[in-house]
Design a protein around this nucleic acid. Sequence first.
DNA 1: GCCTCACACGTTTTT
DNA 2: CGTGTGAGGC
Length: 726
Amino acid sequence: MSLNDRQQEAVLHTEGPLLVLAGAGSGKTRVLTHRIAHLIKEKNVAPWSILAITFTNKAATEMKERASKLVQNGDMWISTFHSMCVRMLRRDAELLGYDRYFTIYDTADQKVLIKEVMKQLDISEKNFPVGQVLGAISNMKNQLILPSEAKKLAGAEFREYVIADIYDRYQDRLFNLNAMDFDDLLVNVCILLQTQPQVLDYYQRKFKYILVDEYQDTNMVQYKLVQMLAGLYQNLCVVGDDDQSIYGWRGADIKNILGFEKDFDDVMTIKLEENYRSTKNILDAANKVVANNRNRKHKALWTAKEKGDPIYIMELDNEYKEAVAVADKIVWLIESGTYDYKDFAILYRTNAQSRALEEKMIAHSIPYRLLGGVRFYERKEIKDLLAYLRVIANGKDDIALKRIINVPKRGIGAATISKIELHGIQNGLNFFEAASDSIQNNIVSGAAAQKIREFVSTIEALRETKDDVRHLVDILIEKVGYLDYIKNYDDEDPQDRIKNIEELVSKAQTYMQAAEEPTLDQFLEEIALVADVDNYDENSNSIVLMTLHSAKGLEFPVVFLTGLEEGLFPSYMSIKDEEYDDTKLEEERRLAYVGITRAMEKLYLTYATERMVYGQTKINTPSRFINEIPTEITNREVNKRKSYQPEYEFKQQYKQQFSKPRQKIENVPPYESDINMGDVVKHRMFGRGTVTELSKTSDDVFATIEFDSGQTRKLSVKFARLQKVK
DNA sequence: GCCTCACACGTTTTT
DNA sequence: CGTGTGAGGC
């Protein structure tokens, strides 16, 4: 397959700033890889002069693979912003006063630390929920607002001042822990480049050609980084689609892409508008939906493909029936012989929705993979073991240390811990140092001291085998008796946890085999920076369940977009003040656009009229996004599937009887039908068929019909309007 | 120092 | 509804 004219232009225009507005499915990855190949092969650019930044590690790996097929790509930097920054910091963190073996803190670690800080400042979590504080701090970091500035900006605003104060202390603590959170990785590189001219100069000269993918999702720090790195040569190519900007909540600023032409001089802009992925109907639906957004660049995505199937819209009673309907369609499509499990994706707005879907996939024996939810590295047992590894790697990581100092239980209790902690604070020691020091000074003595001594020597012994990660994990588990601990600790299913631990061991093994020069730090770093999508393996033959956000950049022949309900998608948060602020709603709409454009051939949109949220049933109306799709290209099925899940039906009735006592329970006479076994009937959509099975419920009769077309369906006699032929 | 029970809270999305 | 946290008892 060759490149089209526009794509070619984007590949050949190598000098100066270039903005490529690449619509969904317009082949931008091809452009990027061909551009890299062109630079190296035709322009004789050295691979190590190229920097390519992607949004996920998976995209980076993929690009590396694709590029390596075209050229030798030895020392090319192809990575995410975060990985790139870690790489730079491992080299120069000392210039900022950090140790190069710094630890990367994830959200959970951040929360623990913020809680500690708030406790010290005597701020109640009631008034300042940790999550909110964390979000506020992250926002400030994304805008490059440092604690000192934050305080100035807060001025007399009490709330903001308190948060700025927490931010200040939090940052201080991080520094002393030799740790950085995700945002710090970017912020610190920014500071590094701003304050160390020789470092800036080095990278500016090094990276003669810079490419940034998914530019619409960059935030201010990332913008600054790009601007600085490209400062000398200005050979900056950014690729993105303003209609696919879905990370505003993470500080991504759509203005970066909308204003690119103003931010740089002599910008060349190329639009890629031919979509190679989806059928015409799918593309039309996507275009029509996103056209309702006002804040966007004009683009007219088109395709040479056929119209294809209509957009299927299905209304179901609740999330379980929705899941069954989806499962049913998958089974049906598989049986039709055209599709394989790997061709399907089920997408949803929130991770919580995956439960019902997962349950029904199991019930229908559909092999599936679930991305997101409780991530592997966030599982308790994994976090515990990683905390050990972190302590081994970075002796200053008190947060990790405190997590495992008494896990498994070894008789070091809260009293001992606070004694050591106090001693540490008074003498400016980190926890590990303070522990040893406390014993020497008899601040901790007796049995407790003995336990501490044992613990310290265990850690020190483990440090000996630090970089043989596989071996280290093995002896760690053995030395601290972690497996026994898990077996006794978990009442229900230690088996799952043990499996996870084995998984970690095998990850260590894989790492050892893959890495050229394996180190514990690098192993931990890889773990800290992987997203779930990074683990998505498209070769395994199973359907995949994931959030819309995770699905960005992927494509599937058949896509189910579930939960299209007002309040869920678009989310309640985005519509609650849409009258005076529709930016959030517009982002939701872009998310819908992303979802729709994942589909190549068939797109199903589903919604439930009733859904359990927080254990309470909520009644929702269909999402406005459904109404934004012209009815001419849709096929809407409304509540066809009342027959499924009789046990659930029963529960619902039960609930209705008892939870709504006001309602009168009438004695409904059983529904009578004149359809019998063996009857030949006609249906307005499915045509002629034979009744092979009948089942009665209190108010309806369901007929299983084998249609002449080959499909078998279970239909409600009450609603299907069957005509008797014979 | 450890364990149990009750209650509060959350779900929008993630590197 | 399910999970995580904190207080109080042993």
